[in-house]
């Protein structure tokens, strides 16, 4: 693999990405434009996350990659193998052993610790896009903190469904200032963003934006005073490990309509089962 630089990208590109990350960390929740590169995977598969990971990864890092909480899906396996070949770093599926976690759509159930970095893959970074299609205007709205329209969306949800029906990519306010899309994680994971000990980095490859939540930063999910923010609850435990406090996926197990609720975090679920044996 000597034909490629460490972590695939050339050093100048990595410097450019790191500069954007530094700015993003300095202004929590602010979307920093960066010169997104063509990556050897298609848009929507994590080009932003891969570039951020390539920007911060070092030879001593231990990498974990998850997709919807699972370590063994195509996207996770491909990206993990990509970095294993391009950097030679150690990889792991154990959350607490990893120093760098790239994730799509979940935050691991195992609590994060200080010193870890989580990289999120972001499809659409702009939280105001739903109501305002003009980029120049959304930037101005961010600059002037004109965030009233975000609540129009919640208002519509309550009006139509009797509650806030937005279940993923639930908008948050970072450090009392910028409104941010936390990428399509379930709102179940939103409380984990608040004062997280780990550094959270967000990369959007197609939209060419990087943003960040530094460790211990307050992150508040938007809500109404009389409709406070709530997370999903299930009336059954995980059908495999029996966990009552993890995010559950519904899987169909046979062709007679049999269903099973299981943890979406495969590492967490397997390790709980091992402990029970």
């Amino acid at each position: 693999m000597s034909a490629y630089n460490f972590a695939y990208l050339d050093e100048q590109t990595k410097r450019m990405i790191r500069r954007s990350i530094l700015k993003a960390v300095a202004i929590p929740g602010y979307q920093v434009p960066f010169g997104s590169r063509e990556m050897p995977l298609s848009y929507g598969w994590g080009t932003g996350g891969v570039q951020v990971t390539a920007g911060v990864i070092g030879p001593d890092d231990v990498l974990k990659v998850i997709d919807q909480g699972a370590d063994d899906t195509t996207n996770a396996v491909s990206i993990r193998r990509f970095f294993a070949r391009m950097t030679g770093v150690k990889t792991t599926t154990r959350t607490e052993d990893a120093t760098l976690i790239q994730t799509r759509h979940r935050i691991p159930e195992t609590p994060l610790r200080a010193g870890q970095i989580v990289v999120f893959q972001v499809p659409i970074p702009e939280p105001l896009r739903w109501l305002e299609p003009r980029e120049a205007e959304t930037r101005k709205m961010h600059a002037l903190e004109e965030y009233g329209v975000m609540h129009v969306r919640l208002y519509e949800d309550i009006t139509q469904h009797g509650r806030v029906a937005t279940a993923y990519d639930y908008p948050v306010r970072v450090n009392g200032r910028y409104i941010m899309r936390p990428s399509p994680i379930p709102k179940f994971d939103n409380p984990k963003l608040d004062r997280s000990p780990a550094l959270l980095l967000f990369g959007a490859g197609r939209e060419k934006r990087i943003y960040a939540v530094p460790p211990w930063t307050p992150v508040k999910s938007l809500d109404f005073e009389d409709h406070p923010f709530t997370i999903e609850k299930w009336d059954q435990p995980c059908g495999v490990c029996g966990s009552r406090d993890s995010f559950l996926d519904e899987v169909i197990v046979d062709d007679k309509g049999g269903r099973l609720l299981v943890c979406s975090d495969t590492d967490y679920c397997e390790r709980r089962r091992e402990d029970q044996r």
Binding site: E146, V149, H151
Partner: peptide, 16 residues
């Protein structure tokens, strides 16, 4: 209702 409420939310109303 959302149309009428938007300006209220724009000036800080947070009670549905």
């Amino acid at each position: 209702g959302g149309n009428v409420g938007e300006r209220l939310m724009g000036v800080g109303a947070r009670h549905y």
